[in-house]
Computed example of a mutant assay.
Amino acid sequence: MSLGRVTSAQPLSQNWGYDRGTPIDRHYIEDFLNQHASDVRGHVLEVQEDDYSRRFGGSKVTQQDILNVDASNPQATIIGDLADPATLPTARFDCVILTQTLHLVYDMPGAVENVRRSLKPGGVLLVTTPGITPVQPDKGYHWYWSLTEEALGRLLEGSFDPKSVTTHSYGNLSSATAFLHAAAVQEISKRKLNRFDPRYPVVIGARAVA
C-alpha cells in the first residue's frame, strides 16, 4: 500500500471491502473457525444466518438455530437480545458460533453468561470480536466496543472455567492498515495477511467449553 494511500482521508470502500472482495477481518474469522471446525457439531446456534455452521459443520450439524435481535430476519428461529436472560434456552446447544457480535452488546458480561447457560455441559463457544477496526455506527445498530486478546479472555473467564478458555489474536501492521482502508483480501498478499504482530490485533478469537 503506497504512502499516498496510507495518508488518504477516504477509505477504498464504505462497506469494509465487501464491494472489492472479501473483507480482511473475514479472512481471520474463517481461519479461526477452520481451526476449530470439529467443534461445530450437534445442535448449533449462530447469529443472523447459518453460513458458518453449514460451511464448517456440514453434516455434523444435526439441528440449527439462528438468533436475531428482531423479527425482521426470516431465517431467525430465536428472537431477542443476547443480554436478556430470557432470550436463550438453558443447556440446549452443543456449539454457539458468535462471530463479530459481542461488541454490539453493551452488557457483554451478561451476554457471555447467557451464552454459557445455553450450552450443554461440554458444549463449545466459538467467539470472535473486533480489535483494530473501522467503526460504522450508521448500519442500523449500536457499536459499543473493540477488544484486546486479554480483555476477551478475562471476559470469558467471568463465566467459564478459566482452564477451558483459549484465545488467539490475528493481524499485523500491514493488515490492520489495509483493513482500516477497507482493502479486500484479494488485494493483499497472503504473506502479509498471515504475519502476526500482537501490537496490531485485527480480530480476536476465543474458544470456551461449558
Rank of each mutant, 00 (worst) to 15 (best):
S2A: 02
R5E: 12
V6D: 00
T7K: 15
T7V: 02
N15Q: 01
N15G: 07
N15C: 07
Y18I: 15
R20E: 02
G21R: 09
G21N: 08
P23S: 02
I29Y: 10
E30H: 12
D31V: 12
N34F: 10
Q35C: 13
H36F: 12
H36A: 13
D39M: 09
R41D: 08
H43D: 12
L45P: 15
E46A: 15
V47Y: 10
V47D: 05
V47G: 08
V47M: 11
Q48R: 15
Q48N: 11
E49P: 08
D51S: 14
F56C: 02
G58C: 04
G58K: 03
S59V: 04
D65R: 01
D65E: 09
D65W: 00
I66D: 04
N68V: 02
A71L: 10
S72D: 01
Q75C: 01
A76R: 06
A76F: 03
T77G: 00
I78L: 10
I79R: 04
A83P: 13
A83E: 14
D84A: 02
D84T: 05
D84P: 06
P85Y: 04
A86G: 03
P89H: 05
P89S: 00
T90E: 14
R92F: 14
R92Y: 15
D94I: 10
C95M: 12
H103Y: 13
L104I: 08
L104G: 09
V105I: 14
P109M: 15
V112T: 15
E113C: 08
R116V: 08
L119Y: 06
L119M: 11
K120A: 06
G123Q: 03
L125P: 03
L125N: 03
L125M: 06
L126S: 06
T128S: 13
T129W: 02
P130E: 06
G131I: 10
P134A: 10
K139L: 14
K139I: 12
G140R: 01
G140N: 07
H142V: 12
H142C: 06
W145G: 03
S146G: 13
S146T: 15
T148N: 13
E149G: 09
E149F: 08
E149Y: 06
A151S: 10
L152S: 01
R154W: 04
L155E: 03
G158L: 02
S159H: 02
D161L: 11
D161P: 07
V165I: 09
V165A: 07
T166W: 02
T167I: 13
T167K: 14
H168A: 14
S169R: 00
S169T: 13
Y170G: 10
Y170I: 15
Y170S: 13
G171V: 10
G171T: 05
N172K: 09
N172F: 00
N172C: 09
L173K: 06
S174Y: 12
S175N: 09
S175H: 04
T177F: 05
A178V: 01
A183K: 01
A184S: 08
V185C: 14
Q186V: 04
S189T: 12
K190P: 09
K190R: 11
R191S: 08
R191K: 07
K192N: 12
N194T: 15
R195N: 11
P198S: 11
Y200N: 01
P201L: 10
V202M: 04
V203S: 08
A206L: 02
R207W: 01
A208H: 10
V209Y: 05
V209R: 10
A210C: 11
A210Y: 00
